[in-house]
């Protein structure tokens, strides 16, 4: 664990909490793309399946549980509890145009052709483009609430910090994962605007 990864995880956690609280407090999900939130829930589900098989640390396990819990709670608030405030006709990004190519790429380019590894690779690729429906929705409505911009900033910052974490780990531990790094660069670039 290094400072970049820790601040990256905290920034990610902050983004997830900011969004959940915003929807809960304002009792509205106006301006929020439910499709992006579904994609994030899918990212966490496919990436954290190893919750059932391997224990790395209390921090690792508890963060994974929190991420999965919050992401499903956010999807629940958007599509069930505050469904009336969901702006469906602006949230019109065709997510199948993301999921299908990402799924195909995960099957083609991965480190190991095992189910868990392919699902992990799928989640890495999907995470890098999962924010597109949200960015698309903001471009259509032409505006983003302040809180949404904070959410996007924290979310963008998290993966940028992970890039530094990978540089750190390469330099000090000789560890690198090209798939995570390339997807991380794509993800960070997407947030830059």
């Amino acid at each position: 664990m290094n400072v970049f990864r820790l601040t990256g995880d905290l920034s990610h956690l902050a983004a997830i909490i900011i969004l959940l609280l915003k929807i809960w407090k304002t009792r509205s999900c106006a301006g929020i793309s439910g499709k992006s939130q579904i994609l994030f829930a899918l990212v966490f589900t496919t990436r954290y399946l190893d919750l059932l098989t391997s224990f790395i640390s209390l921090y690792n396990t508890s963060m994974k549980v929190i991420y999965i819990g919050c992401s499903y709670a956010t999807v629940y608030l958007i599509y069930m509890k505050f469904r009336a405030t969901y702006d469906g006709n602006h949230d019109s990004f065709r997510v199948e145009f993301l999921v299908v190519p990402v799924g195909g790429l995960a099957v083609l380019i991965n480190h190991d052709f095992s189910p868990l590894e392919i699902l992990w690779t799928f989640s890495i690729y999907l995470e890098s483009v999962a924010i597109l429906p949200q960015l698309f929705m903001i471009s259509k409505t032409g505006e983003a609430e302040t809180i949404t911009t904070h959410y996007l900033f924290c979310l963008g910052l998290y993966r940028a910090l992970y890039l530094f974490n990978w540089i750190w780990r390469y330099y000090f531990e000789g560890f690198f994962d090209m798939i995570a790094i390339v997807a991380g660069v794509v993800q960070t670039v997407l947030y830059c605007d």
Binding site: D9, H12, I56, N60, F175
Partner: peptide, 10 residues
Amino acid sequence: KKQNKTKDEL
């Protein structure tokens, strides 16, 4: 080649 991948990252 297989990188030494550890899934200790979130």
